[in-house]
Design a protein around this nucleic acid. Structure first.
Lengths: 129, 129
DNA sequence: CCGTATCCGATGAGATACTG
DNA sequence: CAGTATCTCATCGGATACGG
């Protein structure tokens, strides 16, 4: 329910985030972008992700066409993951976000400290703003 | 546990997403970017968000210094929210993401259909890849 | 009007154990 | 090695009700 969305942009953004907006998806894409091709356990080690979440994430990314899964029928089994063209193109907006973060995370930290300090004082004085 | 993160980029991205990566935060920033200044219930209507989530989201955004909350002590109460300079700067990487989405969501849809269709066939034939 | 508090179901995510 | 299956706990997020 609640299709109260007036602005079309909100709907779009919502759609994006619903698909590729979760933490692990982004991290996997970044990892593959850097290393080119990785095996299941390599990704697992690099990201510090649980087996379960990696499995689920990779399946979704493959389904969405961002990563390509290549199964080599050898013993022991060998499966390689790489970015598709779509996956590579996704890297750019993510990098933009990363740059913004690099520039502004310190600002956020400062703001948080100030905010928390202010709230503490308000508790003491009991002031109602 | 699991500080297995080898690549520093992953840590950074993780930090970004932890702060401003949730759906509602992004949507609120977009809304404020478009309308300039909005009251609590205006935001609520525009986004189709629940009172609870809007309250939580706005508090976090204010704490992070992305939005500025202005309380007008009149009757009935009036509170206005607007983007800070930091909040405005955040809009740009988000727009980049929105553009990517606009261009590529159809591709994702196609990919999903193909994937699902393939999986269906595999179930019928019982093929193991 | 602007919130906070409470309850509750749905989802996210790690740990563990097991199969091919 | 590359997963799947459970179990379990935390967090997300809506609905509702109440207070300033």
């Amino acid at each position: 329910m609640a299709d109260n969305q007036k602005c079309p942009d909100c709907k779009r953004i919502n759609e994006v985030l619903s698909r590729v907006g979760d933490r692990w998806s982004v991290l996997v894409v970044i990892s593959l972008a850097e290393h080119g091709t990785l095996r299941f356990n390599e990704l697992k080690r690099h990201l510090g992700i649980s087996q379960r979440m990696l499995s689920l994430t990779l399946r979704e990314l493959e389904r969405d066409g961002l990563v390509i899964r290549t199964y080599h029928p050898v013993i022991p089994p060998k499966v390689e993951y790489a970015l598709s063209a779509l996956g590579k193109s996704f890297r750019e907006p993510v990098i933009a976000l990363g740059l913004w973060a690099h520039d502004n995370l310190p600002n956020i930290d400062v703001s948080r400290e100030r905010y928390d300090a202010t709230k503490e004082k308000q508790k003491k004085t009991g002031s109602s703003l």
